[in-house]
Design a protein around this nucleic acid. Sequence first.
DNA 1: CCCATGCGTTCGTCAAGTCGAACAGTAGGA
DNA 2: TCCTACTGTTCGACTTGACGAACGCATGGG
Lengths: 176, 176
Amino acid sequence: MIAAAIQRERSRAGKSLTALAAEAGIAKSTLSQLEAGNGNPSVETLWALAAALDVPLSLLFETEAPATKLVRAGEGDVLESEQSDFSAVLLSRCPPHVRRDVYRVVMQPGEVRRAQPHPRGTVEHMLVCAGQMRVGPLGQEEVLLAGDYYSYPGDHPHSYEALEPDTLFMMVMEAP
Amino acid sequence: MIAAAIQRERSRAGKSLTALAAEAGIAKSTLSQLEAGNGNPSVETLWALAAALDVPLSLLFETEAPATKLVRAGEGDVLESEQSDFSAVLLSRCPPHVRRDVYRVVMQPGEVRRAQPHPRGTVEHMLVCAGQMRVGPLGQEEVLLAGDYYSYPGDHPHSYEALEPDTLFMMVMEAP
DNA sequence: CCCATGCGTTCGTCAAGTCGAACAGTAGGA
DNA sequence: TCCTACTGTTCGACTTGACGAACGCATGGG
């Protein structure tokens, strides 16, 4: 499981086993065994690998990439409250080892804003406060109204487009 | 460095070294040495500990806690765009190794909702989409209008109160 | 052809992490 | 007081991860 992650990240970085072992300062035999699934590395070893791969250590524990999630205003599992004047929807539970920066964005209608992909593993969360917008990965764009929530991978080409003046939304940018 | 984190989390969970070691299925001698700073544990050991502590493994690599921050609608450092129809404000940059769960909340006026403190290090981020509310730590409550942002420690007594019907806001709950 | 250089694997050796038991210290009852 | 139950510590024995050298295997000049 960690084995696969190491192999994945190494091939993504285009490094050979020998080269990575050298950069990380560990024996290539060690790395070989790790990728073979034999072993239970020490944190020191993993730290060296993560540093050499220039990825957060967390990434070596992940298994899969996320997909999109759309929660319309009024939808979603409601967390009930003792007091009936309060209702909350958990839109996204944070996976371990990610950063989530919070933005407030105002956007005007105009041409479609096409974003070049962000670093691998990035996820964007959009919650529309006012107005109307179309947003999402290529081919999976959605029209969001006030109260709608949509999250999708940010490491694929995607676009933003305000459909009303002064469209206001909250964006949580998630990076591994 | 990992030593302090383990000790911190263990005391936060209110477990004894002996009990934690038993739950995690590791020798208490091992845990003792880890907390003493001697050692370079294997992932298996850390996984067992994180599971027994019921925290993400990331948490064992340390964290920090902030204070309150209020950004009124229209305030904040604007991230300029090449396209003038787009403006974003970075409300909160995520510190390393914290979890941030995203909620959408609808609240009705009524009695003040007093929250018992969440676990140590918790931070709440509120962005009001519609309506009006009063929220914040005891003695530092603020009235927020649509577009206002407020963040504050969640590990101190604090309260929520909607001032208009169907007050809609986004809450990002941050946990170390 | 043959040697060089790269790849990733397997092997024996050594150091280090993990274990379980025995240890000292503190409370709290009977 | 003695006993019990708990705290966290230190010790030797065992297990295992990390190392470095040697291996088999490809590729590409000279």
